[in-house]
Write a protein that binds this DNA or RNA. Sequence first.
DNA 1: AGGCTTCTGCAACAATTGAATCAAAATAAT
DNA 2: ATTATTTTGATTCAATTGTTGCAGAAGCCT
Lengths: 294, 294
Amino acid sequence: MTDRQDILKVIENEYDQLSPQLRLAARFALDRPDRIAFHSMREVAAQADVLPPTMLRLAKRLGFNTFNDFRDRFRDRIAAPSGSYAARARQLQAREVFTAGSGLLQEISAADRRNIEQTFDPIEDSAIMAAAETFINAETVNIIGLRKCFPIAFYFHYATRVFFPNARLIQGQAGLYGEEIARISERDAVLVIAFDPYTNETVRAAKAAQSVGAQLTSITDSVVSPLAIGADHLFLAANTSPSFYRSLVGAMAIVQALVAAIVSKLGEEAVIKLQASEALLRDNNTYWINGDAR
Amino acid sequence: MTDRQDILKVIENEYDQLSPQLRLAARFALDRPDRIAFHSMREVAAQADVLPPTMLRLAKRLGFNTFNDFRDRFRDRIAAPSGSYAARARQLQAREVFTAGSGLLQEISAADRRNIEQTFDPIEDSAIMAAAETFINAETVNIIGLRKCFPIAFYFHYATRVFFPNARLIQGQAGLYGEEIARISERDAVLVIAFDPYTNETVRAAKAAQSVGAQLTSITDSVVSPLAIGADHLFLAANTSPSFYRSLVGAMAIVQALVAAIVSKLGEEAVIKLQASEALLRDNNTYWINGDAR
DNA sequence: AGGCTTCTGCAACAATTGAATCAAAATAAT
DNA sequence: ATTATTTTGATTCAATTGTTGCAGAAGCCT
């Protein structure tokens, strides 16, 4: 069938076998696909000098059940902001909705894949490299992510512990929060993570970092987030989810990328350090798959 | 006036002076401009959790006479740069080739999307529902994930704290690990998370859970993982990554799905509880986007 | 507290939308 | 030339759209 080729190709292929009126419609679709994407069937028909039903007939003739399905294909090819994958993701999503056998997992899977895509799409390699640089050059690395965002903060702290042995994972335990924040200095780098509703302490930490002139990297959910304002390096994590809770997957992917960038900047030497640390861990403290301790 | 700036910039500038409800709408427009471009006012409003008139009010507030004018600005910014089909095809192709200089981020993005896909692909809805059930029916919920997997464990504990107020997040602090494990009873449910190299304590916990006959749910990376053997409910998280560290994204997605399943099983009542808890959090402890504390 | 303004939710409206129906016209076949 | 078939045009319908007006809620000011 018409399957999933570019809709313009599909039209082109069928063109020869269309009736005169349908050709008029098809030709317009080929020439001005954007109009099809954005305007109503009637408007498009008028612009193409064709009756509205003819436009509908073209859609059906090409194998679509509804004019909206037809138009969606034009929208897909325009909206695809990131090459070919975006279109595929949308297709998957559409198909899943269509075959909707309740499918909670399918929805979650689709949503999280889109989250990752949307999170990474607008980010340049250079941006994450620049952020990585600030942590490498910092005297002390400070990390703040509370509540739901604590897993992200913890992961960064844990994954970079070998390179940044005196990094501070700020948790505000035992009421020491103010003091921990006060210790942030001008030569430090700060990583803050928070989503709406933004935990107050995290916002305070971000502001404190700015006021002393520390390098601030924010992972948050929107440009209007209080963490976004004035951040030196800003990464927006998509977080849609079919469930009650927003998804953390995008944020997790970003910190992992940040860690990867740091490792890559530190180069060979860092990898060796890491391997040594992992080996140690393996021997002493873990149940390893090749062993016989099972 | 709104002039001809990018509509997103316009929104961003006005954002501070908007009413709470309008901010919700504005926020959605900033987050998902594509939806505004392609969907009807009512659909958009529904997705943004806002009444249709609010969406219209936002448009008018920003100086547009009609919602269509507002939406056209979103369409403009993603619309085809005009030109014929051939011209655009060439352009698209050029862009793909150009961005095909696959940077680090693209690789990470692709890998994590695949991780999610592979993680969810073999799992049936019924399987995750069954696992969810064991936690709901348990006398006490025990959660063990150490080192790299601690973020996953913490997230589960945090996200379900409202339903399982006496859940135990086992961390082995202050050398109490053995005691914590010993308290697992037959009527409990246990969630263990570990990847190769499997932390010894986690493996011990899994075995302890099995030996007393508690319901064991494992999130791990392989069927031959020590956590996989004899687990009542097993979920394998894909974890490939172009970087040194294995990715946690798949595991994170799975726990989130597990939480979603629990919420869905608990039904309406759970959601109300959650909302109440979120509201409390919002009022007391957080910097919320609608406030004027900025 | 009271009175004022602003903001929010709801219901209803008229216009427009996609789609179905059916007759007229054109075309092809016999 | 007449029938049969497809293509085209016009009309209509039900659903959805953007929009309006109004009443209650919430916030602000003196």
